[in-house]
């Protein structure tokens, strides 16, 4: 997708110090073959996993709400490629992609979606509520915007302990209008907390387009009142995401406080499985798919540069399909939690 004219940071314009770093968000990371292959594989894993989750939902194996990440894969994969061990990730309920990107096992995620005992939360969390302490993934939150304050708390803990970990808090263009987001921005800027706020702007908060929901549609400026720099990034290009992530994480690690990355992205599917998505045209969706697909972009590059043949990529595809198929089999055959689990994990 063509990013809107890359916005510079509003705080820069008013800042007294001319030496302040400029963030344009328009840099593109140079990927070598390994990086492009890795990005391809990781994004494909999310895509295929989500398609399978959609299918299992259709078959009744997954219940309740199920929000798919298809179309937005470059955001979380590009971010994860820039992060270090120990950096925390927290997001809302469109979270399967984030979990896979942090290295959580497809089996455990899928089994949680089907509410089985070997799911990450033993079947007690479901699609929207999953965690992995080991992978520093702090959920999976069902309340729009709550994860922004919680993620700020993770950054507070990093600052308190004096380590150099950064909290990466994802939220959507919808959550960006919640009050606690700005309460958090204020504290994070005041205390110079190491946090990257990622606004995944997929243009629709459920069925409400950004144009109908926000007075300032450039979300990268949403921190300007607090002096938080921000940049708009082409969230469909994994290299642009990686480049912005490198800059943002470096900004946080060097003690300069929070930063906002507005990822211009798009979800192909409805808000949840039961959303017919009548609020946008088929052409709009089709155009994004055919012209800006994050996976196709990498694929074309790999072929063009002679870094991979169609057969190489087919092999990756098969590998990924096998992982996903295995996770789906596992998630259907794994037993439901023992009834004794009803009363466990309420208090320690």
């Amino acid at each position: 997708m063509a990013p809107r004219k890359s916005a510079s940071v509003s705080s820069r314009k008013t800042a007294a110090k001319p030496a302040k770093k400029e963030f344009t968000g328009s840099n593109i990371a140079e990927f070598d073959r390994d990086q492009d292959m890795k990005a391809y594989r990781e994004m494909l894993l999310i895509r295929r996993f989500e398609e399978k989750a959609g299918q299992l939902y259709g078959m009744g194996f997954i219940g309740g709400f199920c929000h798919l990440y298809i179309g937005q894969e470059a955001v979380v994969v590009g971010m994860q490629m820039a992060q270090k061990e120990g950096d925390q990730v927290i997001t809302a309920y469109r979270d399967h992609g984030h979990m896979l990107a942090t290295g959580m096992e497809a089996r455990g995620v899928m089994a949680e979606l089907t509410g089985r005992r070997n799911g990450y939360s033993h079947g007690k969390g479901g699609s929207m509520h999953m965690f992995s302490k080991e992978k520093h993934f702090y959920g999976g939150h069902g309340i729009v915007g709550a994860q922004v304050s919680l993620g700020t708390g993770l950054a507070f803990a990093n600052a308190y302990r004096g380590n150099d970990s950064v909290s990466v808090a994802y939220f959507g263009d919808g959550a960006a209008n919640q009050g606690q987001v700005y309460e958090s921005f204020n504290m994070a800027a005041l205390w110079k907390l190491p946090i990257v706020y990622i606004i995944e702007n997929n243009r629709y908060a459920m069925g409400t387009s950004t144009a109908r929901a926000t007075a300032q549609s450039n979300y990268s400026l949403r921190g300007s009142g607090f002096g938080i720099p921000g940049m708009q990034v082409d969230g469909m290009d994994v290299r642009a995401v990686k480049a912005a992530a490198d800059e943002a994480l470096e900004h946080c690690r060097s003690g300069k406080g929070p930063i906002i990355l507005e990822m211009l992205t798009y979800r192909y599917r409805g808000h949840s499985m039961s959303d017919p998505a009548k609020y946008r045209s088929k052409d709009e969706v089709q155009k994004m798919r055919s012209e800006h697909d994050p996976i196709e972009q990498v694929k074309a590059r790999l072929i063009e540069k002679g870094w991979a043949t169609e057969d190489d990529l087919k092999a990756v595809d098969k590998d990924v399909r096998d992982i996903v198929a295995d996770s789906a089999d596992f998630a259907q055959s794994d037993p439901e939690p023992d009834v004794s689990e009803l009363y466990t994990d309420i208090l320690l």
């Binding site: 990450y120 939360s121 969390g125 965690f131 702090y138 959920g139 999976g140 466990t344 994990d345 309420i346």
Partner: peptide
């Protein structure tokens, strides 16, 4: 704690 299956 409950939603994380006791993890956190």
């Amino acid at each position: 704690l409950y939603m994380s299956g006791g993890q956190m």
